[in-house]
Design a protein around this nucleic acid. Structure first.
Lengths: 328, 328
DNA sequence: GTGCATTGAGAAAACGTTTTCTCGTGAATT
DNA sequence: AATTCACGAGAAAACGTTTTCTCAATGCAC
């Protein structure tokens, strides 16, 4: 019923091996090649990728495992990965772990079983130190978050410096009491916090950095505490998009407007940010660090493909700068 | 090097067939089963899915092909699909066509070659009528957009009615001159436009419905025309998220605020909408139809799995209602 | 106690490719 | 002109599973 390579071979009057060679682009007689291609077209032959993969012992799929498919950052990166991969003849399987280490392990295992050529992984937040690193012998490139101690290729944002840039920007805008809310569980949160505190110290600012557990209501609680405390801030830095929305929600509930009553800054630019928090003066809004999503995806994919060619090369760590999008 | 089923069999002192049976959960002697499971664990055996797929002639992957991975609607649906599929032992491969019919065809072909069990497809916008339907003999469930004339399972939003609900809502808010911008290329746009006009007619409203080509700047141009025209609207309905952002951008460029100068409504709810367009009165904002994303994904997946069990059943079309999120 | 159905496990075939092996043909070199 | 060489194509092996086939052992009925 399904048409196989032997059917094509029979129609073309050649051997199956020759059909395989034509399809693989190897040197064959021109007349034969034409006959084979005709036969392929007329039979509607579609190679069975399972058989191909089994025999050739390598596949052209790369896995892209992200921690949160709803995060626009990851979808943007995935588009870039897919574009680059397609240009090099590879296809991408996108998997979503929802920040669940168990699902992450499951998908890594799945990629192993699928014999994927390699994996690009945005690790989920880790509660505990990892005992084993992902991948085994399979090439892995990390994006967005590093795994401490793991000797793997990775491409990251310069979180430390970008957080500092944000603080400096708020300082030039005249803010002097800056609060920061940082994810407690992620490497990213720690790095951004470090940059925040370094810059604040250098500028002699009064700051309050809070590590916020990643559970519902924690950001609200932390911010509410700050607002009613003795050193009420005039600006807030949120270390990720979810937290930024929570801050916005809390401020709104308290009747505070951005940026008139409180300046707000964070990471990852979004379309809608142009429309929120317009001050009475007409200026203002949410300033953010925009990540170079296209470049992150492109770099990660290129690194992975490079490593496929050259498995024993030393691992590389690429740290990219973001761009300040100043709104007010 | 890689450990295969024969290695496991040797360690366990049984035949490869027995290992296969144990792993498939078939009835085997308890003692043997224990020995096999031990051997699997001690050898770290990972089945080669390519070989399994080749021999067993069916796979447990379903393809999810969406038109725009950056659209939160599709990512939300994909999470739901993935959850349901995983619960039934299936895995999901997510592919993004970026509204490109060529990429769509390519991915459908890829799913064929991969011998995927079935496909859930959100079709790209079609410039021309489709000559052939996707799938071939492979089960396909359509989501979000139907393909006229295709006899396929599908689960859709009741676009016509929901657009009418939006118009009725704006009417109760006191708006009488309502403009609508609708995508010219998609079935979805046409349906929403029809509902818009039906409701407006029923209410005796003065409306202007414009079909907007899906290219940059068109929405701006259309809206600008309306604003400077003789019948300047007091409310605008945008038929999709991108268009809504463009409307917002245009209004802002003209110095108009939402909802004081102009009411705004559309489709698909987003977190940020709570924070934009807060009127001076404290009320207001962007009213939208929220799609039942979880249910759409769940229904589509269930329908696909049902069809796998029962390929000859008549096709079903499920039309779901959305929920009005009224803001002002 | 014999015959028959039933169960369970091993042997071997099968899945659809790619790759290796082998061989024949024609060109190139001596 | 003879020998080697390069090349291209077919035959056959191989990839790692699942499934079918076969057979031995066990249980049950008569």
């Amino acid at each position: 019923m399904a048409v196989g390579i032997k059917d094509v071979a029979r129609v073309a009057g050649v051997s199956a091996a020759t059909v395989s060679r034509v399809l693989a682009g190897k040197a064959v007689d021109a007349a034969m090649q034409a006959r084979v291609l005709d036969a392929v077209k007329s039979t509607g032959y579609r190679p069975n990728l399972a058989a191909r993969r089994l025999r050739s012992r390598h596949s052209n799929v790369i896995g892209l495992i992200v921690a949160d498919i709803r995060n626009p950052f990851f979808t943007a990166v995935s588009r870039s990965v897919e574009t680059v991969a397609a240009a090099r003849g590879m296809q991408v399987i996108l998997c979503n772990t929802d920040e669940d280490p168990a699902k992450e392990a499951m998908y890594l295992d799945l990629m192993h079983q699928e014999r994927a050529a390699g994996v690009i992984l945005a690790p989920s937040r880790q509660r505990v130190a990892r005992t084993e690193w992902p991948g085994g012998e399979r090439p892995v490139v990390l994006i967005d978050r590093a795994i401490p101690g793991a000797d793997l290729d990775c491409v990251l944002l310069d979180n430390e410096r970008m957080a500092a840039v944000l603080v400096e920007h708020l300082h030039t805008q005249g803010h002097r009491r800056i609060a920061g809310l940082f994810g407690a569980m992620s490497m990213t949160g720690l790095e951004r916090r470090a940059g925040f505190e370094r810059a604040a110290k250098a500028l002699g600012l009064e700051t309050q950095a809070i590590a916020v557990p990643h559970s519902a209501g924690e950001a609200e609680r932390a911010l509410t505490g700050l607002l009613s405390g003795p050193h009420r801030p005039d600006a807030v830095v949120a270390s990720n998009g979810v937290m930024l929305l929570n801050v916005l929600r809390t401020l709104r509930a308290q009747g505070l407007s951005v940026p008139n009553d409180m300046a707000l800054a964070g990471f990852d630019n979004n379309d809608w940010m142009d429309f929120v928090g317009q001050g009475a003066s007409g200026a203002g809004g949410i300033s953010v660090i925009e990540q170079p999503v296209e470049e992150i995806g492109r770099t990660a994919t290129t690194m992975l493909l490079d490593r496929l060619d050259n498995p024993r090369a030393p691992t590389r760590k690429v740290v990219l700068a973001g761009k300040l999008v100043a709104r007010g």
